[in-house]
């Protein structure tokens, strides 16, 4: 396959998200401008101007009309996808890290980093249909555990919130009461910061990636650990194929080895693993720096990766990919 390279960002990529129909791809990066692209040919559609800091995460509504982004400038912003207009700003006292819209797009969960003595927190806000009626009020605030929460997502039917972060523990909270329902086991769970989290297309299980060079697959209702995938590099991004039993992991270098230049230019790869057998199938090379973001198109026929090098690489699979037998 011939990947399409999109160099819209000046700084490293942080997050990638396809809309439900799979025709738009939203990219977030450390430069302050989230961008939307056409997912078939990589043509840039537009950028959302307004943030003053790195944009860490985004989510798009089911009808692809609303985009919500979280940024280090201590705000989360709501945008009109089509026009690029900023509709609303949720203000916080610390950098916002992660956003996720719940089923029905009426609720959003936003996490904020620990900052200047404030602990990390999980905020639930209501999104109103009419942006002029949008309020800043939180429906629920959960003061979080130590360390950064890198991702928080909704569980089935918006009844639960799943969070994961620096302390390597996955937690499930009740979204009504804010009570902690479940925690991942320290023995079998991750040993280092969890950097990424991705839900399956039906929301029944999710994948976490961690700097401990592994990724783990969990049941979303019981938080039972189902699978573990081992790699040789710290994992920065994970995604699952919606149609095949594949998971994709992307990662980087140890901090300790940053000074020793890796002479293998273009050799950072997105690694494909068989979801059930936990075995590596292969890798797709091409990035010049660690991979920070991965996303699969909902139709399962293409995926994109975003790297430290500022590039988004969009790959449409050949027929060979679908013929892989293991």
């Amino acid at each position: 396959m011939r990947p399409i390279l999109m160099k819209g960002h000046e700084r490293p990529l942080t997050f990638l998200k396809y809309n439900r129909d799979g025709d738009l791809l939203f990219s977030c990066a450390k430069d302050h401008t989230p961008t939307v692209w056409f997912a078939d040919n990589g043509e840039r559609l537009g950028t959302y101007r307004g943030h003053n800091g790195a944009v860490w995460c985004c989510d798009v509504s089911r009808d692809s009309k609303r985009l919500i982004t979280a940024s280090a400038d201590q705000t989360a912003k709501l945008w009109d996808v089509q026009k690029g207009a900023e509709l609303f700003t949720f203000k916080f006292d610390s950098p916002a890290k992660s956003v996720d819209l719940g089923v029905g797009d009426k609720l959003v969960v936003i996490t904020t980093d620990p900052f200047m003595g404030l602990p990390s927190a999980i905020h639930v806000k209501r999104i109103s249909g009419d942006p002029s009626e949008q309020s800043d009020e939180s429906v629920l605030t959960i003061k979080g555990p130590q360390g950064r929460i890198n991702r928080a997502v909704w569980g089935p039917l918006n009844r639960t919130i799943i969070s994961a972060g620096e302390d390597a523990v996955v937690r499930i909270w009740d979204s009504e009461t804010g009570k902690l329902l479940l925690e991942s086991d320290k023995e079998t769970g991750h040993k280092k910061t969890i950097t990424s989290l991705a839900k399956s297309s039906d929301g029944s299980h999710f994948l976490t990636g961690s700097l401990d060079k592994s990724a783990k697959l969990w049941d979303i209702r019981s938080l039972e650990l189902i699978k573990t995938y081992k790699t040789e590099r710290p994992v920065n991004a994970v995604t699952l194929s919606p149609v095949l039993d594949h998971v994709v992991l992307g990662g980087g270098q140890d901090a300790s080895s940053v000074t020793t230049t890796d002479h293998r230019a273009g050799k950072f790869e997105a690694k494909f693993y068989h979801k059930i057998l936990e075995e590596e199938i292969g890798g797709v090379k091409g990035h010049f720096g660690p991979i920070n973001a991965l996303a699969f198109n909902p139709d399962g026929k293409s995926f994109s990766s975003g790297g430290e090098d500022g590039y988004v690489r969009l790959h449409h699979f050949d027929q060979d990919y679908f013929n892989i037998r293991i």
Partner: peptide
């Protein structure tokens, strides 16, 4: 794995009505 998948499918189907409600 099949066991997991069938379990999930069951729950998913059960929750279908709820989901629709959430989406107006």
């Amino acid at each position: 794995w099949e066991m997991w998948v069938s379990q999930w499918k069951k729950w998913h189907d059960e929750e279908k009505m709820e989901r629709q409600k959430l989406r107006d």
